[in-house]
Simulated assay, not measured.
Amino acid sequence: MTDLQHQGHWRPVEDHFKDWDLKSGSAVCQYLDCGSAVSVNTTDDSPRRPVWRVSVLCVKLTSGPRDCVGLHGSFNLPSGVDVVCSDLLPQPNISLSDGVFEVYRQGFRVLVFSDFTVTCSVRPQYPGGSFRLISDTEKPLNLTLPAVNHSARFLLSSMGYAHRGNYTCVYHVDVYNRSFTSSQSSALYLTVGDLVTNLIIRVVVLVSALLIFDLCLFFFYKVSVKRIRMKAETNAMRVVEETSHL
C-alpha cells in the first residue's frame, strides 16, 4: 500500500472514489523518481486506520502529492491505493570484441570484410527482455536479440565501408504486462581498416622473406662452389705429386 508522510505522520493514501489510475500513479512515480506506474490498484482488505485523502485531479496537475492532501485529509477508512512503479531502466552498455584491428581515440577500426561482435549488456534488474542494436551508417542496422544473462552478442559478418558509423544499444523489457524501453547507450564509433594497406604490409614482409632466402641460397652456393673448387685443386695437386714420383 502507498503511504504518504504529511504533517509528520505516515498514513496510507485513500482511494474511496476509485478514481486513481495509471496517469495519477505515474505522477506519483515521477515525483519519487521511480520511472512510470506499472499498476494502480485499490486495496479494501487493509485494517481500518487513519488515511490521507488525496485529490487525484491535483496529483495529475501538480508534481507533489503532499500538496494534494485535502483540508479534511484524515479519515478512518479501510480502502487504500497501491501504486507499483517501474523504476528507471539503467542505460545499457555497448562493447566490441572478436575482430578489433586497431583502437584509437575516436573508436575502433576493423578490417574490411572481417567478422566482429558487438555486445550489449545491462545491469541486472529484471529478468528477460531484449536488446536492439541500431546504427546510423550508410546501411543502417536495426537488429534485435533476446537478453541472455542480461546481455546479447550481435555477430556482424563481412562488414564493408558502408558500415562505418555509430552503433548504440537499447534495452526493452515487459514488466507486469507493460512495456518499458531504456535510453540509448553511449555511441560506439566503428571505422573500417583499409585492406590494401594490410595487403601491402604482407607483400613487403613476403618479399623481404624471399630476399633473405635468396641471399642465403646465394651464399650457400658460393660456399659450395668454393669447397668443390678447393677439393678439385687438392685432387689435381695430389695427381701431380704422384706422377712426379713415378
Rank of each mutant, 00 (worst) to 15 (best):
L57V: 09
K23E: 11
S186Y: 02
M1F: 12
L77C: 05
V207H: 01
A152D: 05
D33M: 08
L89V: 12
L190E: 00
E242C: 06
E233Y: 06
I228Y: 05
K23H: 09
H9C: 05
P65E: 04
D19K: 06
D174R: 15
S55Y: 03
F213L: 14
Y104A: 05
L188V: 02
W20C: 01
R132Y: 02
L57Y: 02
V205F: 05
A232L: 13
Q7P: 01
Y161V: 14
S39D: 11
Q30Y: 05
S135E: 05
A236M: 08
E233W: 06
A147W: 00
S183N: 12
V13I: 15
L57W: 02
T117K: 03
T243N: 15
T168V: 14
K60L: 04
G25N: 02
T234I: 09
T2A: 01
V148E: 11
R132W: 03
A232C: 08
D87C: 11
M237S: 08
F116R: 05
E242K: 15
G99L: 04
V148G: 06
F220I: 10
Q30T: 11
F219S: 07
V223T: 04
H72Q: 09
V110M: 03
I94E: 03
G128D: 09
V110Y: 02
R53Y: 08
H6F: 12
